[in-house]
Amino acid sequence: MKRILLNRLLQAILMMWSVGTLTFILVRLLPGDMAYKIAAGRYGDDAVSTAAANAVSAELGLDKPAFQQYLHWLWDLLSLDLGNSLVSGAPIIVELQNQLSFTLVLAGCAIVVAALIAFPLGMFCGVKADSGWDRASLTMSTFVRSQPVFCLGLLLIFLFAMELNWFPVAGYGGAPYAILPVLTLAISLAAVSSRVVRNSTRTAVNSAWFEFSRIKGLSSRRAFVRHALPNILLPALAFMGIQLIGLIEGVIMIESLFAWPGIGHGLSHAVFARDIPMLQGTALVMGFLFVLINALVDVSYYLLDPRQQEVQS
């Protein structure tokens, strides 16, 4: 258990370092003089003068050698001083807190809905493997997987928002606005995981030990819950870990598509506006979210599988 968490902590540190370094290099690579650009951002394009630029340069230590600036940059990062947005001027931390709650709602709801779709559907198809239902579900899953998640979102927008007028197209203003983004993300996650659940259900139901549990007189319901279910959950859970990248990337794309005011939306806007501190902040939060959910998957895998605990203790 300790080792799992330690590994993930290491990953978090590695992630922070790489994001910090990348954004530092980025800042230095931007064309034009840093000081002038920040001055322009602060005082408006018309009010930029050499004096203003020099003041900025002295304040931010831009006249120091690159290596010193790099250390300074990393130190700020470690002390979680992420600076101010170059666009709005507001502290990054405040904006991030705001956005994070939106992202957590979206990601959390999507995971729950995805599980609600994937597990019943996957188990049903696994028990009735190679039936018409199973084939239909495979076709659907292939269809969903064969398109970028934003295309899936667009299709849902056309159908539910523009033709049927059931839900609003984009933006945020209450529960109806959340339905389409959550649904898009959930369907794209469930398309893959329902097949994983289906495969492990099929293996479990056709196994010798499952047959034995039936022969020894357990009802099919009891045999399924006691014997098959744990063996279905574990591979599915392990796979969730791999799928997390899909979740994070999906969040970025879907928030941008639906103008959902979360971290992913902030990230793509920061790239567009070349707002480096904001870019660094959003990339960091995305990275932390990634590491955090990874750690959660690891821990629940450890708790669910008694074999893991025996090996380690």
């Binding site: 990348l22 990248i245 994070i248 790239v271 870019l279 995305m286 990275g287 990634f290």
Partner: peptide, 18 residues
């Protein structure tokens, strides 16, 4: 591991900003 610590699309977006 450094590259894997970050979701791929985040890395690509950061590069696209350069």
């Amino acid at each position: 591991n450094t590259i894997l610590a970050l979701p791929g699309l985040v890395l690509i977006l950061v590069f696209a900003a350069v």
